[in-house]
Write a protein that binds this DNA or RNA. Structure first.
Lengths: 130, 130
DNA sequence: CCTATAATAGTAATCATTACTGTTTTGATA
DNA sequence: TATCAAAACAGTAATGATTACTATTATAGG
């Protein structure tokens, strides 16, 4: 399996630089709608293909949640997320040190590459509403 | 919103009791194929509807992963999972104490109902293969 | 038994994502 | 700068898991 040579594309650049302006983990469709402001005839397939490629290259992270579209995160350093089950919002969560601790408590056979932690609940704004 | 009165159904009982025999977190389709041995004309929609109902009742847990079908877990006490990115297998992981620790390291605004932790990597069997 | 309604089987629809196809862009080389 | 293979693209069709719909059947209270 030969490593295929990467060629630059303005579509990919636009997708990545748009994502870097956002802290709200947008979906492929949101990215599409926004990048379309600059590149009107970009196709949704191109957005998906480049998001997959960027994820593979480790430049971004893909976040999957129950029952909703995948989201994309420009922040690749280890951190975890909080998701509001009322409004669907996804926020970053700091967990200084705790991520390493958890590994010392487990006994998993095999090799661990990645750890995903998501807190599910109700965000402040949605708490205030009801 | 009136609480609708639950009526028993042999389909739901069969789904739940089948799931309780398994430790491998089967998908809706696997559950369907197995329950079909006993109830040949059960429909896939019935399986999905009852899995959703049982999840809502808190009798089982639904597990969502990137790129694959949802899985269902008869074990409702807090624990986390390991997923092999090679073969897709999902295993239970013990994390005595560590789950509580992580919360003390975070500072989330809002109310937390649930914490999901998944380790991604390569399982022992798949490591041996290559 | 009667009746209201929960639950069902079977099928159709939805929706996010991926695959396909013919065209355009990129970049290495002459 | 002209040539050429491969990467990337736009546009569209296909996929696959899940949900919604509809007419029928099963459940349970009076």
């Amino acid at each position: 399996m030969e490593a295929t040579k990467l060629k630059k594309s303005k579509q990919r650049d636009a997708i990545l630089s748009f994502l870097k302006t956002r802290k709200d983990h947008p979906t492929a469709d949101t990215i599409y709608e926004n990048v379309r402001q600059d590149i009107p005839n970009i196709s949704l397939g191109t957005v998906y293909r480049n998001l997959a490629l960027l994820t593979e290259l480790g430049e971004i992270k893909k976040l999957s949640f129950d029952g909703s579209s995948d989201r994309y995160d420009p922040e690749t350093s280890p951190h975890c997320h909080f998701r509001c089950r009322n409004c669907g919002k996804v926020m970053d969560v700091e967990v200084d040190g705790a991520m390493e601790d958890i590994l010392s408590h487990t006994n998993i056979p095999g090799q661990i590459d990645e750890q995903i932690t998501v807190f599910i609940g109700t965000c402040e704004q949605c708490m205030d509403k009801y």
